[in-house]
């Protein structure tokens, strides 16, 4: 690990502040390029950094060796000792000066051409399949965390410190912006990689609609909005480990997805429904999605 981030990288603006640290847009004094700095404070003892941090960093570095085109590059990791008990770990990522939200907003009316949506989705799914095959759940996919270069290359950001999970572990229910949250997260049930597929499904629909698909104001409201579209799941499909009952919701039956996403093709609609499947175990995986006929349309 390099010793001093402060010498090489100069912050120019704050771009995010999460639960575990702050994100800065910064300039690499040597190259003149922008980078994204993500700092985390970790407790240290006489043995140095905790093993869990060392492992996370090692995993990120290992991922980096694949040089995947659809995830942001991790350029550097720096550790600065702050006190005897605390070390600041700074992850230095390549900075991409456009996010998917901006990209969608600036597309001239009537929106992105179908071929461009297909291309973006394919890249998104490749990035996701890569993370998932390395046992990383993103957990916070939203248009702001999906970056698009001026050449139209998609790069996933903000998976950096996504907790590394041992493939079927139940995680604490926090994360993900409400609008892109999977039902199992809203219901505080156990969750895994399918949550990212749900979020990607919401984003897929948004690319056509140019506005979010489900804009709930609370967890329950969010679930209600979801069931208005996909229909109320049956009692048998309802997870057993949750407190909220299926009977709290109106008995919506599902409506054609094309009522909500009118521009989508037949195959596109089929893939979208596979992604917006209530039961996470029956929801399509990133790898299988890449084999879907939608990606062969042309």
């Amino acid at each position: 690990m390099a010793q001093d981030a402060a010498v090489q990288y100069e912050p120019v603006a704050e771009i995010g502040g999460g639960a575990y640290g702050t994100v800065y847009k910064a300039r690499d004094r040597q190259s003149g390029q922008f980078v994204a700095l993500k700092s985390v404070r970790v407790q240290t003892d006489q043995d140095g950094l905790p093993l869990s941090t060392v492992r996370e960093v090692a995993l990120l570095k290992r991922l980096e060796q694949f040089d995947h085109p659809n995830v942001v590059k991790l350029m550097d990791v720096c550790a600065t000792l702050r006190t005897d008990h605390e070390t600041k770990v700074t992850l230095v990522f390549e900075h991409v000066d456009q996010d998917l939200k901006t990209y969608l907003d600036k597309a001239p009316s009537p929106g992105l051409p179908a071929s461009q949506i297909q291309d973006l989705m394919q890249q998104l799914m490749c990035g996701l399949a890569f993370l998932h095959s390395n046992c990383i759940i993103h957990r916070d996919l939203k248009p702001e965390n999906i970056l698009v270069t001026s050449r139209g290359q998609v790069k996933l950001a903000d998976f950096g410190l996504a907790r590394i999970y041992s493939c079927h572990m139940a995680l604490t229910p926090v994360v993900v912006t409400l609008w892109y949250r999977a039902p199992e997260v809203l219901l505080q049930s156990t969750y895994a990689t399918p949550v990212d597929i749900w979020s990607t499904g919401c984003i897929f629909a948004e690319m056509f609609r140019r506005k979010p698909l489900f804009c709930g104001e609370s967890e329950v409201d969010q679930l209600g909005k979801i069931f208005e579209v996909i229909g109320l799941p049956t009692e048998e499909d309802w997870p057993t480990d949750v407190t909220l009952s299926q009977r709290n919701f109106s008995p919506f039956s599902n409506r054609p997805i094309t009522d909500f996403v009118p521009e989508i093709s037949h195959q596109g609609a089929d893939l979208l429904l596979e992604m917006l499947t209530f039961d996470p175990l029956r929801r399509i995986s990133a790898l299988n999605a890449l084999d879907h006929l939608y990606f062969q349309e042309g």
């Binding site: 100069e10 912050p11 000066d97 456009q98 996010d99 600036k106």
Partner: peptide, 13 residues
């Protein structure tokens, strides 16, 4: 950090 909004803006926006 001594920078104006234009200097730090999201360049693609």
């Amino acid at each position: 950090f001594g920078r104006t909004p234009l200097q730090v803006m999201m360049m693609g926006n």
